[in-house]
Write a protein that binds this DNA or RNA. Structure first.
Lengths: 138, 138
DNA sequence: AATGGTTATGCAAGAGGATTGCATAAGAGG
DNA sequence: CCTCTTATGCAATCCTCTTGCATAACCATT
């Protein structure tokens, strides 16, 4: 499926560049090897919750460098693990918050000092989980 | 879709009756107005995490909060992880007990506060592991 | 090891949703 | 009103999920 890849690229693009129109975004996607029509871009922006602010697309409540309550990043490992990187010593706190959110795809979490392992069932659940956790901490 | 209804009925059935084979389960489903083949039943049981224990199907989950020495339930994630849910703070103790049992399929365990990740090789080992651990604590 | 009973699974078909592009409507700013 | 930009109804297409069939794998017993 093309959609997830495209949306990820879009997020990357609007974070790194000033993008003023959907056609402009579309051109960048093209150059990145992702074909898309303006229709799709429009629908993606809607889904991602991107807003146009002062003439360019941006994520609402954009993070200004400092991490969201201890969470530094999310990665996927294999097809049934999501790995969360946290600030030193914050993993447990972050894990508690994730647990409290009751993300349905999450089967279990184990926290170390600055890393959390999150068990899920498959790639699909992985994607959904990353997305949801990111929502919690954004 | 038929699937959700069928799986709910299955859960109800294995909780209320002693069911020893998938054909038996299938017959009960029929009587409840849900047609199904043995293939579907097999896949449902897999998805639901149902385990055959002492000759009858059952869920590896303690219903009544009161657990078998700290173990609340077992789940499978992907094809090489078993996730054990424990009472708060009990994960390490439960893990020690699991380790002591020397379950041959278990490659390693990591315990957090109330969750244990248990690494195994494949689906088959997963099933065997859930069964064996459940038997230890039952 | 063969057998009989039970359970798992590869494959292909069908059903239902999700995704997309096109055309076009709606909106925004001059 | 005109142009540029964005949103959306519709239809075609693509995918994923579900299922049954056939059969393989498994397991206990002899």
């Amino acid at each position: 499926m093309q959609k997830d890849v495209r949306q990820q690229k879009i997020l990357g693009l609007i974070r790194s560049k000033r993008i003023g129109t959907q056609e402009e975004l579309r051109a960048h996607l093209m150059r990145a090897g992702v074909a898309a029509t303006q229709s799709s871009v429009s629908r993606d922006l809607e889904e991602l919750g991107v807003v146009k602010h002062q003439g360019s697309y941006t994520l609402p409540q954009s993070r200004d460098g400092h991490s969201a309550r201890g969470l530094l990043g999310l990665d996927m490992a294999g097809e049934s693990l999501v790995v969360a990187k946290c600030e030193s010593g914050m993993a447990t706190a972050v894990a508690v918050e994730i647990d409290r959110a009751h993300v349905s795809e999450i089967i279990g979490t184990v926290a170390g000092d600055d890393t959390i392992f999150i068990a899920v069932n498959d790639r699909k659940a992985q994607r959904a989980t990353v997305k949801k956790i990111w929502e919690i901490f954004k």
